[in-house]
Amino acid sequence: MIEIRNLDFSYKKTPVFSNINLSFPEGSIYGLLGENGVGKTTLLKLICGLQRPTVGNCTVDGMTSHDRLPEMLQHIFFLPDEVTLPDNATPQRYVNELAPFYPTFSQGTFLHLMQEFEVEPDRKFREMSFGQQKKSLIAASLSLGTDYILLDEPTNGLDIPSKSQFRSILSKIADEGKTIIISTHQVKDVENLIDPIVILSHNAVLLDASVQRITEKLYFEYGGAQRDDALYSEMLPGGYMNVVANTTGEESQINIEALFNAVLRNKERINALFA
């Protein structure tokens, strides 16, 4: 389990987080959402020990992240948004270099994922498009078999079919009990995939709740008129979509973009609703 307790972090004099608390139990796909620059990538770096908190701490299976103990690193893999790849290297060679460090690596899984993504494992990275490189790296990350997989903007550069493949592959991996944390601002790409949802704002965590809890507290109404009591309204073909406090207990289908906007615009009301 990943736990963040009373964590403060700042880049020199610019505060990024102030006294945040989060926990990521095993076996879910967490969506880490937020506007640009709120610290989504920084939070991932803090989790895997690449940044040291100013105050508080972050632990992975009880081990302090910034100690970067080999025992911890063996269980966690971080795929940044951009990766520098050696020109002549191939995806197969990339995993060959990593595999000895990860006893849980599966060559079969790697080849299967590469096949699903329709990328040749022995093709040089420099001959690939950005999207193909990204798919290769995702396949490599998921085949290492680590308990925790941190993906920063994984759908950047993926075409539409690849995004669907990505969602389907990740669902299968999560079913195997892995914990996946996806940081993204492209919320549509991970809709129906992420649960729980964590929304970050400057210095704070605005929302940290499962989809079930969100639908208990909020109601997503489609196709009616604009409501005065709506936390967020958006004109769609066929009428308005309103996000309102759920007073009836009726279930509805979450729209992540609308949720995101509702949370950002009504921080205090959301806090009160989810308290």
Binding site: C48, Q74, F78, D81
Partner: peptide
């Protein structure tokens, strides 16, 4: 992010 690869090796 070129340093991250090396830093994350177990």
């Amino acid at each position: 992010n070129s340093g991250i690869y090396y830093a994350m090796l177990p």
